[in-house]
Design a protein around this nucleic acid. Structure first.
Lengths: 343, 343
DNA sequence: TTGTATGCGTTATCAC
DNA sequence: GTGATAACGCATACAA
């Protein structure tokens, strides 16, 4: 049984003024109110533990101080770092963040987008899994500001934090080649998303440039997504490598979690990394430094990606005139211990 | 420039009925409306892409379909699993979740709580860092439903998902003793939180029961919190162990992230786990299976903790009469590869 | 400088 | 079964 919260009208009554005046003071409007009244009203508000009701405010102004984030899964460390960056930037701007896990399910993604619209949220940062952008498009027409991360959305009005996946794939492969590796196999989950295809493309270009034959092993389609799914996928791919009669000297794995699985299974079968075989990952998540051997990887700046996407979003929200623009983040090689130079 | 969204009034006008009737139909009220009108109104709503405005609804009804979660940091895998559980359960109930990272900072925690109240949110799941519960208490009086996880809050009305930390500490220690270990050192971050003290207590009881002398190494106070902070802390504690002339045969580390750091530093100094020294962790996060050696740990059911806390919260929200009740989750030993039996 | 009145989109109360 | 109207809490156009 909670007592009814006090409103500006209650304060107005106590102060013997109109609620308009109270509103002007308490909402920090620059509308002129006498110093004396300001003090009196603030005092009463303080004493009565007044809490402004943002619902009323937002309904009136058609504004919102909440943004939404749609990602595949928060328990994936890459995305949790992204969200951390978003949340910090949002808080600095006095916004709160609604986090939505799409679980790689287009239907869920759509459900979330609908809810977001109903809640009158004006800003969305999304790693979209769905191919069908008609809903998103109509939401943008109705005023939703959208920033795409991780997965490109080819729509006008959608700003993007892009990442140069292709260059990343190229860099990682080049690194192995420069260390003397010739037989480099690319291990990947199903190549059904643009980001994955780009990494693979970069790998292929680097191989061909060096006159080497690209070889890839691709996993089947994914079932429902969860935290350790990629890890298990990595194990399965490692099994396929182990079954090869002519084994490569290095493995390029399409993300770190899968690389962990690869290394783990290899170790189980007494193939030491990097002594017997070298492994390089992709993403450069912090956990890479915690495993043995510490994982060499192509770093995708997760936390920074979160911060930038949020800044970009606020730019759009506060500045309707501004044209949509993209930011392209560059990959960086994180050299640790999982790659051995070949003489 | 977004066009004005359509409302029940617009639909009423098109259908030549009153907005009251439209509301009755579209809000699925059980108020009687003729079949014919129902169909007509739904058709128009559909065709015009009507999106209900939850702000209006909530302002009118003083309800909310958003809950908030306050945790130290989403980039800590333990909490990201908790949040995953919360978010899934919330979505099943058509609620969305606002995630707040307190960074172990009481001031930030308070700031978030105030925002939550302003947004008229009725439910909060919190791992509280603050000692001062006066704000939280007054919020509960104003109708906020609170469920505490991870850190106990001794207040009436606060329901808790407790975890039997002491038993966990006892179990882990007992496991080492049963495998023949006699010199077991407990490695911990600063014992300033109840949960940490309880684990230590369990360790101590098990040691004393076996006639062994408890030995602990405690780190200094923590600075600002972040993802790999615990990992680095573990490294530092490992250094202290390495400096010991008489080394223990086993280490009990107060959480998994720190245990990763311990193992990592030990390996750097050519002390193999578990060949030279055994290590057991606490939390049982999934990443434990990915490192080498796979970490034996006391499992705290993170994901389930999230699910249950959310269910408990909805129970309170929907059922004001119900008395606050606690749930006590039991620890479970996850035996992997980081502990060696001593003969 | 202050007050009055209205509307944001919805639902509930009351009349018909 | 349906409609008119008030109210939720707030901000603002307009009046004074």
């Amino acid at each position: 049984m909670s007592k009814k919260p006090i409103t500006i009208h209650d304060i107005a009554e106590i102060a013997k003024v109109s609620s308009a005046t109270v509103s002007r003071v308490l909402s920090n409007s620059n509308y002129p109110v006498s110093k004396e009244l300001q003090i009196r009203i603030r005092k009463i508000a303080e004493e009565s533990n007044y809490i402004p009701n943002m619902l009323g405010k937002q309904l009136k102004n058609n504004t919102s101080t909440t943004i939404a984030v749609i990602i595949p899964s928060i328990s994936n460390p890459f995305y949790s770092s992204v969200v951390q960056g978003i949340e910090e930037t949002a808080r600095e701007n006095n916004y709160t963040v609604i986090t939505c896990n799409s679980q790689q399910d287009p239907a869920l993604e759509e459900e979330y987008i609908r809810t977001i619209m109903q809640k009158q949220i004006k800003g969305l940062i999304i790693s979209s899994i769905s191919d069908d952008k008609t809903l998103l498009r109509s939401c943008m027409q109705m005023g939703l500001n959208v920033v795409a991360i991780d997965q490109v959305i080819e729509e006008d009005q959608v700003s993007q934090i892009k990442f140069n996946y292709e260059k990343g794939g190229y860099m990682g492969t080049k690194h192995l080649i420069e260390l003397g590796h010739r037989q480099i196999t690319y291990l990947t989950s199903k190549l059904d998303r643009p980001s994955r295809r780009s990494i693979y493309k970069g790998y292929k270009i680097a191989m061909e440039e060096a006159g080497l034959a690209p070889v890839s092993i691709e996993s089947g389609a994914e079932e429902l997504y969860n935290a350790i799914h990629d890890f298990d996928l990595g194990k399965k791919l490692a099994d396929k490598v182990l079954a090869l009669s002519d084994k490569p000297s290095a493995l390029f794995v399409c993300n770190d979690m899968m690389a962990f699985g690869v290394i783990n299974r290899l170790a189980d079968k007494n193939m030491q990394v990097p002594e017997h075989i070298s492994v390089i990952g992709f993403d450069g998540i912090d956990f890479g430094m915690m495993i043995h051997p510490a994982l060499t990887s192509v770093k995708q700046p997760d936390y920074e990606m979160g911060k930038m996407s949020c800044k970009l979003l606020f730019d759009k929200i506060n500045n309707e005139a501004v044209a949509a623009y993209d930011i392209v983040l560059q990959p960086q090689l994180v050299i640790r211990k999982s790659v051995k130079p070949l003489q």
